[in-house]
Nucleic acid binder design. Structure first.
Lengths: 199, 199
DNA sequence: GTCTATAGACGGATAGAC
DNA sequence: GTCTATCCGTCTATAGAC
């Protein structure tokens, strides 16, 4: 994975550029310039731009798995693991304010392009969704674990979106704190997430 | 605003295409084809693509104002008005699942392009933010009205982002119901939004 | 004659593909 | 390195209103 082959260098450079400039806006020349190879050399490794995108998605899926595994190892309780997820927003706050969430913005762009790799990008969301669901299940939320997972995932996406628009770091910290509070309340309160409306 | 002048036809067509395909991907030829005019004709009305974007943002700001005014008129209580906002996600669910939130995706794209109109697009978020804050203030939340406004705005953005990725209409409805419940709880509970961590 | 709307052709630049 | 397609932006020409 951390190989230094030209092919891997291309994928890693494309990964970064797709995030910072978007898929459509990133040209072969941009990637070649970063890697330090000629454009002609390119088609020796990838015959089309879409092929690079596929590999970038695979790379991101691998990095996501590594991160989730690390959280699973380092944090001992499900609640702490969920807090790791929320904390990610603070750790990556600079990039999020500039470029948004790497997964969310890629999915959004590919959706508008109606690109074949839409589903692949969405699977990275699926990785988070499954991992979060496992944590909520371990927290004794067997019934609505998936709903809670999607809810938390959505909150993180919303925070990223507004952080990009308003460039407000305080907002990120405040919302992450709200998530932590929500997780605390979740442990005490019984099943409450859906149900009941006052009307 | 609802004029049929060629200029307005261009702006309205661009508005739709920017939403569906993205700003970068939409070409003059695309817009001209929809409007039914020649490309050469274009530059009599707009001398650059960025000028169209500016007008599209202005148009969207106007439409947003009209919508907010309508909610203010039609719903009598602040709580009902806030529910109108959440309900918007359900009403626009089809388009949201396909293209995401018009405001969020435009802001995200312009941020990656580092486009001069970034701020203009962000101002549409600002319209929602101000209007929501007014409702929370009217609800007796003078202190944290802006935080609550940003929180609700973020939730709506997160819902839109995941709805696009997973194409799940049930998820949208469930999350909107959660927002309604949250609004109900807000009326009863005193100031609770920030504060207190267990740790 | 002047002004405006429209059309179409041209050129420079760039991107993707080979 | 080249080839082709596309796109942005400019230029010129035409037609009608006033």
């Amino acid at each position: 994975m951390a190989s230094d082959s030209t092919r891997d260098l291309i994928v890693r450079a494309a990964d970064e550029l797709f995030y910072q400039r978007g898929f459509e806006k990133t040209s072969f020349a941009d990637i070649a310039e970063v890697v330090g190879i000629s454009r002609g050399n390119f088609y020796h490794h990838f015959k089309a731009k879409d092929d690079i995108l596929s590999e970038v998605i695979t790379l991101r899926a691998c990095k996501t798995k590594e991160m989730l595994d690390m959280w699973t190892r380092n944090a001992k309780t499900p609640a702490d693991r969920l807090r790791c997820f929320a904390q990610m927003l603070i750790e990556n706050r600079k990039n999020i304010q500039r470029y948004g969430c790497p997964v969310g913005t890629l999915c959004s762009e590919l959706a508008k392009l109606d690109h074949p790799s839409q589903g692949g990008a969405g699977m990275i969301f699926g990785q988070f969704r499954s991992w979060l669901r496992e944590q909520f299940e371990a927290l004794g939320r067997g019934v609505d674990a998936d709903s809670l997972s999607m809810h938390l995932l959505a909150r993180s996406q919303g925070i990223a979106a507004l952080a990009t628009a308003f460039h407000d770091e305080t907002f990120i910290r405040r919302e992450v704190e709200l998530i932590d509070t929500w997780l605390d309340d979740l442990k005490q309160a019984p099943i409450k997430s859906r149900s009941r409306r006052a009307s």
